[in-house]
């Protein structure tokens, strides 16, 4: 059912108004995989995601989906292929979960077309996949932070796109809910082959859950590839200016970044002195 689409950037420069944040970025998002964009505050990781999702116009260069510029495609057609969950989405007051998730069907409906059986099925699948079916009639305002985030993801799922972009989907969630949301995205990726691109704050969770890491810093891409190759002590030093040790996650055998601060270190670390 899911088709693999090729999303790439060519010599992309992106930013806000007069300020260029990223320059000359050329990258390819691996189809059918989970990609995490990591980087420091104001490094441009959100800017990259928002430009990929054609929320921001590029300053130069292109974002190409299957070879066509996303900024020149018909909006509705693009919305049938690529979805986005922004960092802090807004909901109208008093909206129910089912109604909100149903809004994800927008690009599949015409100006005056009616709600169809297919729309019902899509909403059901989205609620079921996110475990929010029993919340369907609830008012969004009455849900907990974790439940609400699952509902927003359900809305993006109801859009039934082959590519799903998420801007920090775990912010404001406690650690249990962060894991729950990331597990859900893996489910989606394995079950339906959805290509997922997300901005993540937490390096270690990014390394655990992503197949492909993109490290953003200093106005461009510092490294990209499998987490084992990307997440190194040198990279953390360049991107975050932080000395660290990389150890192996005993649970997932992925790299884990352990920071070295000025205090609390038991052994002497050469890097910390530097």
């Amino acid at each position: 059912m899911t088709q693999h689409h090729r999303l790439e950037t060519r010599e992309l420069s992106a930013g806000y108004e007069k300020r260029v944040i990223l320059e000359d970025v050329s990258l390819t998002i691996p189809a059918g995989k989970i990609t995490a964009i990591v980087g420091g505050n104001a490094s441009g990781k959100s800017t990259l995601l928002r430009t990929l999702a054609r929320i921001l116009q590029p300053k130069a260069g292109n974002v190409l989906l299957d070879g066509n510029s996303v900024h020149h495609m018909p909006s509705r057609k693009l919305a049938q292929v690529m979805g986005l969950l922004p960092q802090s989405p807004i909901a109208p007051e008093g909206i129910t979960v089912a109604d909100l998730v149903g809004r994800g069907r927008h690009p599949h409906q015409g100006v005056f077309s009616r709600w169809s059986r297919e729309d019902d099925r899509a909403v059901f699948r989205a609620l079921e996949a996110t475990g929010t079916e029993e919340l369907a009639e609830r008012d969004l305002d009455t849900l907990s932070g974790g439940q609400r985030q699952r509902v927003w993801i359900a809305m993006a799922l109801a859009q039934e796109t082959d590519l799903l972009l998420l801007d920090e989907p775990t912010t404001f969630l406690d650690v249990a809910h962060q894991i729950e949301v990331l597990d859900l995205l893996v489910d989606l990726n394995t079950a339906q082959g959805t290509t997922i691109v997300m901005v993540l704050h937490d390096l270690n969770l990014a390394a655990r859950y992503a197949d492909h890491l993109i490290a953003v810093g200093g106005g461009g891409i510092r490294a990209e590839g499998a987490p084992q190759q990307v997440l190194t002590e040198e990279l953390v030093q360049t991107v975050f200016g932080l000395s660290c040790r990389i150890v192996t996650d005993p649970v997932s055998h992925t790299p884990v970044m352990v920071p070295i601060g000025r205090h609390k270190a038991v052994e002497k670390h050469k890097d910390a002195a530097a």
């Binding site: 999702a53 509705r76 919305a79 922004p86 807004i90």
Partner: peptide, 20 residues
Amino acid sequence: ARDLEALRLGDDTAQALGVR
């Protein structure tokens, strides 16, 4: 009206749903 309704979810979400 439909696009206006989508705008209530914020500009970013509306654009992600294919609304200019």
